[in-house]
Design a protein around this nucleic acid. Structure first.
Lengths: 185, 185
DNA sequence: GTCTATAGACGGATAGAC
DNA sequence: GTCTATCCGTCTATAGAC
């Protein structure tokens, strides 16, 4: 892997663990095994590097979720597959975490991947919900957008509960609770 | 208000806006209109002050939620009142936000108020859900703990969606989605 | 491309005068 | 109780040699 790639990957990890304010160029360099000069040769500075890292994380998250939501099975099963997918619960969501960082949200280049990822996710979920309602797998009256927002929110909020309790089970409880409510046709 | 109180209140605000890592003693002093010496006279340092601020925020959050969950109306109405209560959506949750800050979660004194608040909230919600199921206001098979976790998660995740979209309506969509699912008896 | 040296600002805290 | 002075480390970046 190139130095440039190692820098991006290290930044992805550190943004996930410590957020933007909590991540220093020095820490990135150390994790990537690269020197100062090297980093500033490939990137103009911390914001530039963070933008590259967030774009990559956003692509990866969309690819992972898209695979399940576009996968095999009926609509209900695909939503369940998305909700039940293996996750690093206590680490939380790499993208969702960024919404808490004012410096990220204030910089359009950093904010864009976050905004786009959630817009994409909600749209994709809404389409599957609509499909499920049409097929009679989900309750007839459900609003697709609202239901999709609720599903996405349960995942993001589940991470919060799990970290607060320091227990991944809090996440899984929330997911099971949501699935039970969806099943109540 | 005493200098001590102003320091605590300023810290509450800054922790909410910028998180623990992003909040400096200097910024706290400026917002509180207090000098360095004054701050270090009343508190041993940043962690001590943050602990006082988080404890106060935790109390306030529990008081606000408790009032609605213990208020008038049947179980379903109290859950709806909690979900629909007026919120500063784009600012997010003062307590939930802290779960993303590794320095907070690593310090037992800072972590405790966060952990306790969510444990309390989930327990309180579960009791109301159980009451609603018993009264036939909520679907018969619902697991109280899981449903409560899902409800708490929708709120926390709703904040994430709203901040990502820079639009409070994302939060309200998630809430309406959750309420619709709860209504589906 | 990568290295070392250097720089100004800020973070977090201490000391001692008043 | 509050103020000013001072301290050492880190943050983010630039400069220039190799």
């Amino acid at each position: 892997m190139s130095t440039q790639d190692r820098l991006i990957e290290s930044t992805q990890e550190l943004l996930w663990e410590r957020g933007y304010v909590g991540t220093s160029p020095k820490a990135i360099q150390q994790r990537a095994g690269a020197g100062q000069g090297s980093m500033y040769h490939h990137f103009t500075g911390k914001p530039d590097l963070a933008a590259a890292a967030l774009q990559r994380s956003a692509e990866q998250m969309q690819a992972a979720a898209g695979e399940l939501l576009d996968g095999p099975g009926n609509a209900h099963d695909r939503i369940a597959a998305y909700l039940l997918r293996q996750r690093d619960v206590l680490r939380g969501c790499r993208i969702g975490r960024m919404t808490q960082d004012p410096d990220v949200m204030a910089d359009p280049g950093l904010r864009a991947p976050v905004q786009e990822t959630f817009a994409w996710l909600r749209g994709r979920l809404a389409a599957v919900v609509a499909e499920g309602v049409a097929a009679g797998e989900l309750a007839a009256g459900l609003d697709a957008e609202e239901t999709a927002a609720a599903i996405a929110a349960v995942v993001q909020g589940g991470y919060v509960l799990a970290r607060a309790a320091d227990d991944p089970d809090a996440f899984h409880q929330a997911i099971r609770g949501a699935l039970a409510l969806l099943r109540t046709v």
